Simulated scan of single mutants.
Amino acid sequence: MSFISDAILRGVTGAFVTNAGVGKIGMPAEYSAGVQQAAASGIPALAKLPSDKFGTWLGYAETVIGASLLAPFVPNKVAGAALTAFSGGLLSMYFRNPENTEADGIRPSQEGIGLAKDVFMTAIGLALVTQGKKN
């Protein structure tokens, strides 16, 4: 991939993910518990974490992933792998909740539109991981 396409894929996605992460850091305990409940619907092991701290921990994780995309010294494969893992977790929430999809289990319902868009982050992460360039 070229420098320009790398900058577009990494810059836009990195800014989006970083902003989402920063917005979660220090969230009130009741909101944190709600975010944790939603996340645990896709990844049940997350229910075992302290609910009052979950939102802040998620915010830090998102911020680190976003920053890795923005930092040019982080290899594309590393940043792409982090983004793919993160967005894969979001898509697991989408597919494990029947209310998020139409009857076919694929197309998003009105409730699932917000998570369905995360397929774009998965595609960007996979593009970064699989490109032929060494960085």
Rank of each mutant, 00 (worst) to 15 (best):
G14M: 08
A67W: 02
I113G: 00
A39P: 01
G26F: 08
I65D: 02
G34L: 04
L83P: 00
E111G: 00
N19V: 14
G112M: 08
T130C: 12
I106L: 14
W57N: 07
L126V: 14
I25V: 15
T122D: 00
G66K: 10
Y94F: 15
Q36P: 03
V78L: 12
A85K: 05
P44G: 02
M121K: 08
A61N: 04
L46C: 04
S51Y: 08
E99T: 12
K24S: 05
A45Q: 11
I8P: 00
S92E: 11
F3V: 15
A85H: 04
M27T: 13
G112C: 11
R10H: 09
A103N: 10
G112S: 09
A15Q: 05
A33E: 12
G66L: 07
I8D: 03
P108A: 01
L46G: 06
A29W: 07
M27K: 03
G80M: 01
N97H: 09
F120R: 12
N19G: 12
G89I: 09
N19K: 15
E30H: 14
P28C: 08
A116M: 12
T101P: 00
K53L: 10
T84G: 05
L46K: 01
T63G: 04
A39M: 13
I25L: 08
P72A: 10
M1Y: 07
W57S: 08
L115W: 09
D104S: 09
E111L: 08
S109C: 06
V129Y: 10
T84Y: 06
W57E: 08
M1G: 11
P28Q: 06
L9I: 11
G80S: 05
G42K: 07
R107V: 03
M93I: 06
G105T: 09
A116C: 07
G59N: 10
S2F: 02
S51V: 14
